[in-house]
Every structure is written in C-alpha cells, then in structure tokens.
Amino acid sequence: MRRSKLLFVPLWVTYVFLYLPIVVLVVMSFNAGESAYTYEGFSLKWYGELAADERIRNGLINTLVVAVGSTAIATVLGTLLAVGLARHSRSKALDALALMPAVLPDLVLAIGLLLFYGVIALTLGHYSVILSHALFSMAFVAAVVRTRLSGADTSLEEASRDLGAGHVVTFMKITLPQLAPGIVAGALLAFTLSLDEFVIAFFTIGNAEPTLPIVIYSMIRFGVTPKINALAAILLLVSFVAVIAGQRLTRIGEAQRAEG
C-alpha cells in the first residue's frame, strides 16, 4: 500500500510543475494593480484592455487566416500523399521524405524557406506563411491519415477496382469516406499547429501584419503586461473547451461505429 502511494508522488510533482505557472497567469490576469508581480485585488480591467487592443485582434484574425489557408492546402496534399504512399509506393526514402518537415527543427525549415523565397524574389506576406505552414502541416496530416489507412480494410477498394472503377473513382467513393475521421483529425492537428507556430512565421512573414504568436513575442520583448495574462487565460479556456469537445466527439464517433 505504501509503495503504491509513493508511486504517485512523481505524478503530483509533474502536475504542480505543469500547472503552477498557468494558475499564476490566470490569477494575475484578474489583478487590479499595474504590477505583473503583486496581486492587488480583483478586477476585469485587463480583459477590457485586451478586447480594445487592435493589434491583438488583428493578430488573431491573421493567425486564423494563415491557419485556415495552410490547413486547406495541407489536408488535400497530405491526404493524397498518404494514400499514394500507402497504396502506390513501397519506397522507404519517400516515406522518410514525407515525414521530414515534421522532424526537422523549425529553425532549419524557416531559414531554408526564407532563402528560397529570396531566390525566387517572392515578396513575403501572409501567403508565404501559409505556404510554409502547409509544408509541415502536410507531413502531420499524411502521418495521421496513414495510421488510419493501415487499419482500413482494402477489400472494398479492390472490389471497386475489380468492378472496373478507376483509381480516382475508387478513391472518391470508397477510400475517402473510410478515411474521413483520419482526415478530420489530421486537419485539426494541422490547424492547431499553425495557430501556435512562431519561428517559421517570424522568418517568412516579411512586412505583413503579424500573426498572434508574433504579436505576443514583440509584446513580451517590450515588457511584461497583465494584458498578456488575460490573453493566456482566454486561450487556456478555449483549449479546455476544445479538448473536452474533442473527447466528446470521439466518444460519440466510437459509439456510432459500435452501433453500425
């Protein structure tokens, strides 16, 4: 008995380490005072200031634009790539190539892309960030969809082809519906990765209006402000809701599959 309790001590240590900074951020976001360090009573004023901050609002919009654009590209390309690699290729080298953007350090991707856009004389902007984010997102989508593919039943596809349907028709009518949950999961992953991505966006955005992570980065470079605490609290709330909703959705999906 004593041993099993000891077993869970590290777990609590880890949770305290992970959540202490977050709790502090949330508590300080309600601070009435100006200081980032001393709590001087409850107030919602930082949330008001946050709502009024145009840079943060624009940053959020830009981030969403980039995330939607890159996710769209990455989902289409990543899904095709996953099917192509699983069904039409046995090359280990191509598998590795498809995973490379997810494995390489972001900094290496960032400078490579910066050099490339320079050579082709592309004026940097949101679209260059979209192209760049789509690169690593595609790798994640392809990986997620492939996991789903490896568990999928190929007999239907074979039957479809035996009956004379072409690859494209088979893909649209048979493979795609089977893969849908994997594609949605991959797209969600791509979307969240893009929302939080800083390094590559920082290098490839040029003079376009910054994305939210870049706005936050420059705000922090100019000092600590409780406004950022309020932003952190809101982002945290959104992730909580998203995670719980995601859990519910998977459970409903599983229930449906069990019934069907």
Binding site: T192, D196, P213, I216, Y217, I228, L231, L235, S239, V243
Partner: peptide, 9 residues
C-alpha cells in the same frame, strides 16, 4: 495547448 510563448513568459 496554450501559446508556446505565453508559457515561457
């Protein structure tokens, strides 16, 4: 899931 830079901050 919170922003990477905010976590560091």
């Amino acid at each position: 899931w919170t922003n990477f830079i905010i976590r560091v901050y």
